[in-house]
């Protein structure tokens, strides 16, 4: 049994932990709000871009395949992955979930040469040592929160270039899709070559399409833009999910600290009561001894 003083000290330290977690929760909440509106705005753009691209692709004669649409899978066993994790922990299973997905992917595609481009410190920490360190290609040390559109453009240009040169046959991106504050999904999607099914079903048009200057010329500009917006969208989605996850984790931590404080206060009161009873007994028995 702890002494009353020790219990009091513990209560004090847990109270300050509670204050910290509450502050972190509020910081995450305000950041979440900011980034959430961005993710929603950018979803509209990405969605429209997808529609335009799919209609454009449906206009092309299928036999003439565009280099970015054809399957190079068989030519090159190299697979490139862009992995987006957080820079910090204390956000529940957020980082673990997405890393687990990537590890699963590497295990399933053991016959291929999977290389990772890491965005986010946590991913870098995980893939810098251990069994999968060989998969790491490079780490982009830019904080995820500051990963602006210009950086995405540079990255996308590099990736498209590498793909066109045949350095790798597939490009995937692993990120965490934001759904609600309580729910987000760690997932990977294939960016290159484009998943044809996601384009075929939608947006088939009847009738003539006027295309200026020409399908291929527009594709040449629209395509890199599409990849850019996809990567940018994934980063925003991940960032939003991270803040949401951190907020949830910190709410839980604050609640747990509160419960612990209640419990400790209870023990403290019990210990105090016991000490008083003991003292009283001593005084009374001492007094009785004197009377005799």
């Amino acid at each position: 049994m702890l002494s009353t003083r020790e219990i009091k000290q513990r209560i004090r330290s847990i109270t300050s932990i509670k204050q910290i977690t509450r502050a972190m929760e509020m910081v995450a909440a305000s950041r979440l709000k900011r980034v959430e509106s961005r993710v929603i705005a950018s979803r509209t753009y990405t969605g429209k871009m997808h529609q335009v691209l799919s209609r454009l692709i449906s206009c092309r004669p299928p036999e003439e395949s565009h280099p970015l649409l054809t399957d190079k899978e068989h030519k090159s066993g190299n697979v490139k992955i862009v992995l987006i994790t957080g820079d910090k922990g204390l956000c529940g299973a957020y980082n673990n979930n997405i890393i687990k997905k990537v590890v699963e992917f590497i295990q399933v595609h053991a016959n291929k040469n999977v290389k990772l481009i890491l965005v986010g410190k946590k991913g870098n920490v995980y893939f810098s040592k251990g069994n999968y360190a060989s998969a790491k290609e490079r780490y982009i040390p830019e904080p995820v929160e500051k990963f602006g559109y210009d950086k995405v453009q540079a990255l996308a240009a590099q990736l498209i270039d590498g793909y066109e040169k045949g350095e790798f046959g597939e490009l995937h991106i692993f990120f965490t899709k934001f759904h609600t504050v309580m729910q987000s999904f760690a997932m990977g999607i294939r960016l290159l070559p484009l998943e044809k099914d996601t384009f075929d079903s939608k947006g088939k048009l009847v009738g003539e399409y006027i295309i200026e200057p020409s399908v291929d010329q527009i594709l040449e500009h629209l395509f890199p833009k599409y990849i850019e917006t996809q990567i940018y969208q994934c980063i925003l989605e991940s960032l939003t999910s991270e803040f949401a996850a951190r907020r949830v984790a910190m709410i839980a931590a604050t609640e747990n600290a509160g419960e612990m404080i209640d419990e400790l206060t209870h023990t403290y009161n019990k210990a105090r009561q016991e000490a008083i009873t003991k003292e009283l007994l001593e005084v009374i028995s001492g007094a009785e001894a004197l009377v005799r």
Binding site: V52, R55, L56, L205, G207, E208, Y209, I210, I211, E212, P213, Q217, I218, H221, L222
Partner: peptide
């Protein structure tokens, strides 16, 4: 302004994609 010159769009325009 399109890359091929200025243009206008009114209602019931034919489907079009342009830069």
């Amino acid at each position: 302004d399109g890359t091929e010159g200025s243009f206008g769009v009114l209602a019931d325009h034919a489907p079009m994609i342009t830069e």
